[in-house]
């Protein structure tokens, strides 16, 4: 584990996110099923599968955000930005400060209601994200990183 954690509000925010994306998953499926099936055969199987699917999804929605949050940590110091995440695949990434090209923050409707925002830093090749930081903290971090980048003069 690294020094900093992401904001605990991430857990309810992610829950909401998962639940909403679940709606997109289940509603069209049910709609299509009733639209295209002329006569309903083996209704008990259909309902049974649907209930099992919904239960599994509900379990995912209630437990995965918690687990994901507990495995997310990051650290920003003069060496660079370090991130550590992952439940089954534990991944540790380091981006040195002097490779960072730009930093931006982003906020969707769900994150806004929880006062969170995503910070993303791009280097010349790709970009990395720290999800769900408190708004002020992400602004602060953005300014801090930008200042640090300004001190280093190097070119791709």
């Amino acid at each position: 584990m690294l020094e900093e954690r992401i904001h605990p509000n991430a857990i309810p925010a992610w829950r909401l996110q998962y639940a909403v994306s679940g709606l997109f998953l289940f509603v069209p499926a049910a709609f299509l099923y009733f639209l295209h099936t002329k006569e309903v055969v083996a209704l008990e199987w259909v309902i049974g599968t649907a209930i099992v699917a919904i239960i599994i999804y509900a379990l995912i929605v209630s437990f995965l955000p918690q687990l994901r949050w507990s495995r997310w940590s990051y650290q920003v110091d003069d060496k660079g930005i370090q991130m550590r995440r992952g439940i089954i695949w534990v991944q540790h990434t380091e981006v040195p400060i002097n490779r960072i090209q730009h930093v931006d923050t982003r906020q969707g409707p769900i994150y806004r209601s929880y006062g969170l925002s995503v910070i993303r830093f791009s280097n010349a090749a790709t970009s990395h994200e720290i999800p769900a930081l408190e708004e002020d903290l992400s602004q602060e971090l953005k300014d801090k990183i930008t200042d640090m980048v300004r001190l280093v003069k190097e070119d791709v």
Partner: peptide, 13 residues
Amino acid sequence: KIRIQSIGNSQHT
């Protein structure tokens, strides 16, 4: 070394 954009490691269960 100066061209490495990021470095990382990962571990599976």
